[in-house]
Design a protein around this nucleic acid. Sequence first.
DNA 1: GCTCTTGATGTAACCGGTTACATGATCTTA
DNA 2: TAAGATCATGTAACCGGTTACATCAAGAGC
Lengths: 346, 346
Amino acid sequence: MTNGMANATIRDVARAADVSVASVSRVLNGHDNVRPELRERVHAAATRLGYVPHAGARSLSLARSNAIGVVLPELHGEFFSELLRGMDREASARGLQLLLSNMHADPARGVEALRTMRGRVDGMVVMAPHIDPDQLFAHLPTGVPVVLVNCAPHHQPRPELRLDNIAGARAMVDHLVATGRRRILHLAGPVGNIDAEERMDGYRAGIAAAGLEPLIERGTFLEESGVSVAEKMAREGSDVDAVFAANDMMAIGVLMGLRRAGVAVPDRVAVAGFDDIPLARLISPTLTTLRIDIAELGERAIARLTDQIGGADDRSIELRAPTLIVRETTSPREDPEHRGTRGIYA
Amino acid sequence: MTNGMANATIRDVARAADVSVASVSRVLNGHDNVRPELRERVHAAATRLGYVPHAGARSLSLARSNAIGVVLPELHGEFFSELLRGMDREASARGLQLLLSNMHADPARGVEALRTMRGRVDGMVVMAPHIDPDQLFAHLPTGVPVVLVNCAPHHQPRPELRLDNIAGARAMVDHLVATGRRRILHLAGPVGNIDAEERMDGYRAGIAAAGLEPLIERGTFLEESGVSVAEKMAREGSDVDAVFAANDMMAIGVLMGLRRAGVAVPDRVAVAGFDDIPLARLISPTLTTLRIDIAELGERAIARLTDQIGGADDRSIELRAPTLIVRETTSPREDPEHRGTRGIYA
DNA sequence: GCTCTTGATGTAACCGGTTACATGATCTTA
DNA sequence: TAAGATCATGTAACCGGTTACATCAAGAGC
């Protein structure tokens, strides 16, 4: 039977070694006030019984679990995977385990996910770009340290990490304008998603500064949105000469849609994304985008959380600026005649 | 102070509602043998105090944690992310949480990772293609259900999920042979990795069956290996007409290396991978590969584990066969003269 | 009216660790 | 040799829940 024999407890070990449970605990936790001979007996008994301490019981009496909760939106794609990788790196370096929870779209289930973490973790990292944190934290245990990552606006006095989406999007628009684009379409993310909204704000600011006209379509952050926008552009004979998508997956969709429609990138239309997922430099033409060091973001979240658990009281918001990565999809056009023109294509 | 006030306990609630802890517990767990008026009082007190149950204490007394441990190799790339996504889907459907642990290359740390899960999870999913499971489980708590995923050969009588790497690789070689390739190079994965070894076995079998000569290079499962093999081929004027890489990332590296060297794919050289990561259909030319439904693999692991936890005793090994996905990188050559020739290229 | 059943509620033991405090042995020191 | 200090070890309370069992009140049946 796999689960035939229950595991030995510390009392079993104590009995087997003919000592008290206190001594067993002391030996196993490496306290030095134990006679060597007794220490020996305990170790022998423990290995003989195959004793493995019960982490749950341990954390109950210590009021410390050495685990931290990670609450993420729908686990999807490379962003999430990179973030988790960074967290894992930092956490395992500090001897912490990660308890994962998926915060679905439904706020009620989200609250439930956070509640079930109480008494199981020492703190939490919460990333919820699509849910109002005030609502989320209203019915939550107090006294659990939390670090927010890229959350919607709120009134929580909590430590927080954010992307500077506005500056990033602004930099991209500036780049497109500097390379001669004038009809710049923004393919935005879903309504209510904080990253989507901020990137759109940055786009608007850049467009206004250049004295251009804003052109905005809404997407879903998925590849398909990009494809359909490209198809629509081709169908309607649009005069757009650059598409700035709110994330890389949509930008890639745009690339595929344009290729299928026979529209030259970057000669006719420039394309840019956001995130710099690994894919961005592998497709062809390679994609201009904004790089976020996602794994490092994850590491930093864990680091700040452990500081907080350790008693620090730093509630500041840390803003991380993305870096503009220029690749082939926004190269200046070879044909100088295009510069500034508004050619119609089919 | 974020963590100024400790959380209320069930005894606090009992005192506030002027009832016993037993009644509070009954109310909060939805037992029906409680007078409505009292039930009301308890709910009121609980919300007034912001009471959230302590999951650790609960699982200690219930001997059930509703969490399952997931032990994965170095969290890297799309494979891992898809697997975790599938597990999360199934787990949250069953009301389970996932406790993540990274099994690094070092077996000692791996054992430690498994030990710290005891008393914290109801069972574990272990994926360790690079570590000997016998060694791993030698000093482990008995009585904890475990499902192995893609592990090295062992003598563990445990339920297990595996990829049919051999059949997959064999199918790919057959496909390459059928489309006229004769000098087929296998870019294998690292020594000691079970997936790598099995894929190589499948390759060997296919090559032998076709009466061809095996050509093998070792790689690291990373893109760079592919690039350097492609460079080496071009440099040495190799007569290889197909490269079958042991995973997609290496295949993509090969594609990039060949493109840079000006070697036409698939006309001069066909390229194929293994895994069907999302990237495979996005690059150009699109990559022929073997599809594994990774997320489903993850779901299935959780499903089998919960069966096991529920008392089932099914120790069978489930073999999942990859599906051959033919795309552009292995299209038959347009120039029929190449068929069977061994042209040298620079 | 009295016993028996039924059902709500409370008391206290238990899950498996940790540790404050008590105990008692050994060693100093006068 | 007796008093005091030091140190290893054991006893039992505690962490925060759950629940077997005891208790007691109300209603049923005679």
